[in-house]
Design a protein around this nucleic acid. Structure first.
Lengths: 323, 323
DNA sequence: CTGGTTATGCTCACGATGAGCATTGAGTTG
DNA sequence: CAACTCAATGCTCATCGTGAGCATAACCAG
C-alpha cells in the first residue's frame, strides 16, 4: 500500500482560548529554524494504544502541556507533498490530521508553549476597529500587481475575480468565513513569508511586492490556522460553540465580546442580546456582575436545552455588506 | 513516530450522482465477505508520486473506474482502532481519509462497480413521501427500549434526550443534516448490522430489538456514507453544489428534484423558483424543454457570477417543523 | 446631586420566507 | 376544434427575523 517512500502520520492541534477580547492560540517554538518560528503543537498517533484519533490528541496534548481539552473537532487532513521540504529527499511523507480545540480562559498551564494573538498571523481578519488599513495600503495594490502579472487576459480576469471574492473588493462584501481562501490567495501571490520560503531553490522570483506585515509559521501551519479560524467562524453561526470558551456564568457583554473577537466584527449590542435571549441560548442566573463600570449586569449561563428546541442554534454573525 | 504496530493510510471515495430523482453512490463489492457486502471505493496514497491527497484520489478513481471526477471535497479522516477487525491481530492500523465527489448523471462508466440508491442504506432519511414508516414502526420503539435499558435514571434521560434530538421526537423537529448523529445512535443501540458484527466475540448481547431493514456495508463504510450525506445536505444550503450534479442546462423542476432527492424533503415549487431566480443562482437560456408533459419549461443554467454577489449562495432547504 | 457608563427595554422599517390562488401554454381527447 | 390535463409561471398576503436606533434604568465617581 505504501510505496518506496514511507508515510508517517501525526496530529496537529489548534488550541484556542479568548482572553481580554483577544483570540489566542497555543504555539510552540519550532526546534531548528534559523529565525525562531512558531509551530502548532504536534504529536504522534500511537497505533498500538490510541483507540481513536481524538484520544491520541488528548493524550499527547495532556502529556506535553498538562492541558485537559474539552471541545475537540477534527478540522482537515493535510497531506501535500510539499508541506515539508525534507520530504522527497529521504524523509518520509508526512500526513497530518489537524484538530480544533476550545478551552476556557483560565485553563492556562502551558509549559514550554506560548499563547499568541490569532490576528498577529492574520492582521487583515480583524475588522473590529473598522476595515484594517493593511488592506488598502498593501493587500489591494499587491493583489492588483499580481493579477496584472498573469500571462494573458483571461488569467488576469480570473485572478481579479478571485481577489474580489476573497477580499470583498469592488462591490463584493467581506465574508468573514473565507479565511483560508484569503490566506491561500496571499500565498499564491507570494505576499506571505511561507510562499517565498517554499519556493526557494525553484523558479526565479517574479517581480514581487513586499511581504505583508504578519507572523509566519513553520511548514504549512499557518494554512492550518486559517482553516481553523474559518471553520470556527462558520460554526459560531449554527452551533453554540462559544460557550466552550466562557466560564459557566458570564454577562451578555462578555459573551458578545468573545463572539466579536472570533468573528472579527463588532455587533449591535441590543440585537445581540435579543438574539441570544429570545433564541433561548442563555438563561439568567439571578446573580449580578458588579464590575461592569456602569449598571450591574446580570450573569447568564448556557441553556443546554436549546439543542432540543432549535435545529441550528448559534449566534448569527451578520455579513459585512458591500463597501 | 510510529510504534511497533505500523500505520497504513488510504483514501475512500463517496461518489455521488442523482438520476431519476434517486441519489446514488458508487459501491464496489467487498472481496472476502461471507454474505457479499458493499464497500466504498478505496485506493492508496502513493507517497512518492501523488503530490496531494486530492490528486491521489482522482488518480486511482480514474484507474479503477475510468471516471473523471469534477467536484471533490475532503470529508473526514477515520482512524478508530476498531474500524478493521484485523487490526491489533497483526494487521496494520488503517487510517483512511474520506472524500466526497459529485459527478454528472451521464458520467456512468463504472467497470466492476455499482450505483446504489443512497436511501437503501438509510431508509429513515427519505421524507419525500412523508415521514418514513420505519420511524414509527421500528426505530422509535427500539430506541425507547434502548433508553429504558440504561443502567440508571440519569443515563436513561440522557439517552432519550439524544434520541429526541437526533430523530426529532417529542416536539423536537427533524433536522435533515443530522444524518451521522442518527446513524451513530442506531449503531450504539445495535439496530444496524455493523454494530452486532463489530461486537461479535466481545461482551454478551443485551436484550436487543430486531435489526432495522437497511443495507449494511463493510467496516465503518456506512458511517462514512452518513458523514457524506450530512455534509452534502448542509452544504446545499450555503454553496451552489447542486449544479455539479446537473447537466449544463436544466429546467427548474429538474433542479428542484435533485435538491429534494438529496435533502430528502419535498419543496414548495413556486417558492423554490423564487429562491433560485431572485437569488441569482440561475439564468434563463431562452431555450425550452418540451418533454415536460405540460407547458414547456424554460431551460436554465447556473450563473457563476452569483459567487461574486452573495456570500453564501445556496438553496435554502427548510427545516421540517415540530411534528 | 450630577454626569459618565453600561445594562436593558422597546419600536419601527424592511426584506426573506411559507403558503396558496390564478393564469399561461403545450399536448391529448372526444 | 373545443374541452381537458398537466406543468410552468406569475402574483399576493401574512408572518417573522433582523438591522438600526431611541429611551430608560442602575451603578460609580466627583
Amino acid at each position: 500500500m505504501s510505496g518506496p517512500q514511507p508515510i508517517a502520520i501525526g496530529l496537529n492541534a489548534v488550541i484556542v482560548a479568548v482572553t481580554a477580547e483577544v483570540p489566542r492560540i497555543l504555539t510552540v517554538r519550532a526546534p531548528a529554524t534559523k529565525p525562531p518560528l512558531d509551530a502548532l503543537p504536534f504529536g504522534p498517533l500511537e497505533p498500538a494504544t490510541d483507540r481513536t484519533l481524538d484520544r491520541a490528541l488528548r493524550r499527547w496534548v495532556g502529556e506535553q502541556t498538562g492541558l485537559g481539552l474539552g471541545y475537540v473537532e477534527q478540522l482537515y487532513t493535510f497531506g501535500d507533498r510539499e508541506r515539508d521540504p525534507r520530504e522527497g529527499r529521504g524523509g518520509s511523507r508526512l500526513v497530518s490530521v489537524a484538530y480544533l480545540a476550545l478551552v476556557h480562559e483560565r485553563a492556562a498551564s502551558t509549559a514550554g508553549a506560548e499563547w499568541r494573538d490569532w490576528y498577529e498571523f492574520f492582521p487583515w481578519e480583524d475588522w473590529r476597529r473598522g476595515r484594517p488599513p493593511v488592506l488598502e495600503e498593501a493587500i489591494e495594490p499587491a493583489l492588483e500587481r499580481w493579477a496584472e502579472s498573469a500571462p494573458d487576459a483571461a488569467a488576469r480576469r480570473e485572478r481579479r475575480e478571485r481577489a474580489d471574492i476573497a477580499f470583498g473588493l469592488r462591490g463584493v462584501g467581506w465574508d468573514g468565513d473565507r479565511v483560508l481562501e484569503r490566506y491561500e490567495l496571499l500565498y499564491e501571490a507570494e505576499l506571505v513569508e511561507e510562499a517565498r520560503r517554499d519556493r526557494a531553490g525553484r523558479r526565479a522570483a517574479a517581480p514581487s511586492s513586499p511581504l505583508l506585515p504578519s507572523r509566519a509559521m513553520v511548514l504549512d501551519h499557518r494554512r492550518i490556522l486559517a482553516t481553523a479560524l474559518g471553520r470556527l467562524r462558520g460554526k459560531l453561526k449554527y452551533r453554540p460553540v462559544v460557550f466552550e470558551l466562557l466560564p459557566p456564568a458570564f454577562t451578555l457583554l462578555q459573551l458578545q465580546r468573545v463572539v466579536e473577537a472570533l468573528a472579527g466584527v463588532r455587533l449591535h449590542k441590543q440585537n445581540f442580546r435579543r438574539l441570544v435571549e429570545t433564541g433561548g441560548l442563555v438563561e439568567g442566573t439571578g446573580r449580578q456582575d458588579l464590575e461592569t463600570g456602569g449598571r450591574p449586569a446580570e450573569l447568564f449561563s448556557f441553556r443546554r436545552e436549546v439543542l432540543r428546541e432549535r435545529p441550528a442554534p448559534g449566534v448569527g454573525v451578520p455579513y459585512v455588506r458591500r463597501v
